[in-house]
């Protein structure tokens, strides 16, 4: 019998704690596949955020740490500067990276740290119970915007990729969506490129934003969530490569 699909070794053989229809599982799998394809399992160190992915070290079979909310790019800086031969990546959600950790990601990019950052944007705080994130869409109902996000009170959704693309130290910035199989294939290409830049010792930060579903706190079915990414989120967070200097 021909094997058409198997677990990639860097992904552990265990069920995750993620909700049905959540995008984290897909994102994990793509990263694990890329680590195996690039043969960098032995020298990759991952950094998990505070957020739903805090337990990512239970799913990736590599050396990993979990750090304070938003501080992953600073931790990654400390790791990479002292270990230039290692491949360092952070995996951060929108609460972590776009709210409390804005300073750390901007300055890591600004310094041109040679790290890879995977940014999961699902427009909401997941772990704490569906509160508004900086990336929450206008009119989106969350636990802390019960009548929907308004421009007047909470401001517009924050477009982190666009911000980072302005910085010379960020050498690669792309936004993808984990929605349809075609988009997921594009996302894999982007993530792989972001890791390859580091393995090729490119001088700067590689950043991939992934629009991700959160059916529970979007109050939708998984299928509706995918449609919402495609129809609504991409209007505010347009897909594509914002910058690739290599």
């Amino acid at each position: 019998m021909k094997t058409v699909f198997k677990r990639t070794p860097t992904l552990k053989d265990c069920p995750t704690h993620y909700c049905p229809g959540c995008g984290h599982g897909t994102a994990h799998r793509l990263i694990a596949e890329i680590i195996d394809e690039l043969g960098i399992h032995d020298r990759t160190i991952g950094i998990a955020p505070v957020g739903c992915a805090v337990l990512a070290y239970d799913y990736f079979d590599i050396d990993m740490t979990e750090v304070a909310h938003g501080r992953a790019p600073a931790v990654a800086t400390g790791m990479k500067r002292t270990n230039p031969d290692k491949i360092i990546f952070s995996y951060q959600g929108d609460g972590d990276l776009a709210a409390i950790g804005t300073g750390e990601i901007i300055h890591a990019a600004h310094r041109g740290e040679q790290i890879t950052v995977i940014f999961i944007n699902n427009a909401v705080f997941g772990m704490t119970g569906g509160q508004m994130a900086p990336t929450t869409m206008l009119n989106q109902v969350t636990a802390t915007t019960p009548k929907g996000r308004t421009r007047a009170s909470e401001g517009y959704p924050l477009q982190v990729s666009e911000l980072l693309a302005l910085l010379p130290g960020a050498i690669y910035v792309e936004r993808c969506a984990l929605s349809t199989p075609a988009q997921i294939r594009k996302a894999k290409k982007a993530i792989k490129h972001a890791f390859e830049l580091q393995t090729n010792n490119a001088k700067g930060l590689a950043f991939v934003e992934l629009l991700c579903t959160c059916p529970i706190y979007w109050r939708m079915t998984p299928a509706e969530s995918i449609e919402w990414i495609e129809k609504e989120m991409t209007k505010v967070f347009p897909l594509g490569c914002l910058k690739d200097t290599k």
Binding site: I45, I47, T65, V67, A68, R71, A74, V75, A76, T77, G78, M79, K80, R81, T82, N83, K86, G103, E104, H107
Partner: peptide
């Protein structure tokens, strides 16, 4: 904040 977390990163390795 960043400084102490950079220490965390280097120390973790």
């Amino acid at each position: 904040l960043a400084a102490i977390n950079m220490v965390f990163g280097a120390s973790a390795t």
